[in-house]
């Protein structure tokens, strides 16, 4: 199916759960709220005409600098091995309560990228069997891929002003 047909089909099957659809450069993109993600995912996987049986990837995006509401987004890239078409599901996630339901009950391949979502963005995945750090050390503080996480910090090796040493540690602006 082409991108347009996929979007039409999803709209017809799940009118209530879909927030919006778009077709950037011909790719089918569906916008979904976190609450309706399990129903949408199940429909996309089990509908015989769509049959998205392969989960390519899940990515987190932080739209802090663009001041977009909601701030975070989880993007699911799905592919159908039989029909050879793909769809992108974008789930907006609120800053105050960053949670999203798991899809690992449908696609086992989601286990790792969902854990990475927590590790890098601090997005809690509800129902995930192992919600802990994946790439960063277990005792790491902060979520590195958030836009307000500094790129590098300059450590002060030596200072006469010992009491204020921690204040001298500052975020280094990126060089472009």
């Amino acid at each position: 199916m082409t991108g347009e047909e996929i979007v039409e089909k999803v709209k017809a099957g799940l009118a209530d759960s879909i927030q919006e659809t778009s077709l950037p450069q011909g790719d089918a993109v569906v916008f979904v709220a976190p609450d309706s993600l399990p129903a949408v995912a199940e429909f996309l996987k089990n509908d015989p005409e769509l049959k998205f049986d392969y989960l390519s990837d899940i990515r987190g995006v932080d739209y802090l600098l663009e001041e977009r509401e909601p701030r975070f987004e989880a993007v699911y890239q799905l592919y159908s091995i039989d029909h050879q078409h793909s769809v992108r599901v974008r789930v907006g996630i609120d800053e105050d309560n960053p949670t999203v339901p798991t899809v690992s009950n449908l696609w086992k391949g989601a286990l790792y990228p969902e854990q990475e979502l927590f590790d890098m963005f601090g997005i809690n995945v509800e129902g995930h069997p192992k919600m802990e750090r994946l790439i960063m050390p277990k005792d790491w503080e902060g979520f590195p891929l958030r836009k307000d996480y500094p790129l590098t910090t300059e450590t002060v090796a030596f200072s006469h002003n010992r009491d204020f040493k921690s204040e001298l540690v500052k975020s280094k602006p990126p060089t472009r």
Partner: peptide, 21 residues
């Protein structure tokens, strides 16, 4: 975001996805 610097770059890595399997 319309500038000369990408706002987000995410690699879909086949090895990463294959490790749980």
């Amino acid at each position: 975001d319309g500038t000369n610097v990408p706002a987000r770059v995410k690699l879909r890595a086949p090895s990463f996805m294959a490790i749980p399997g």
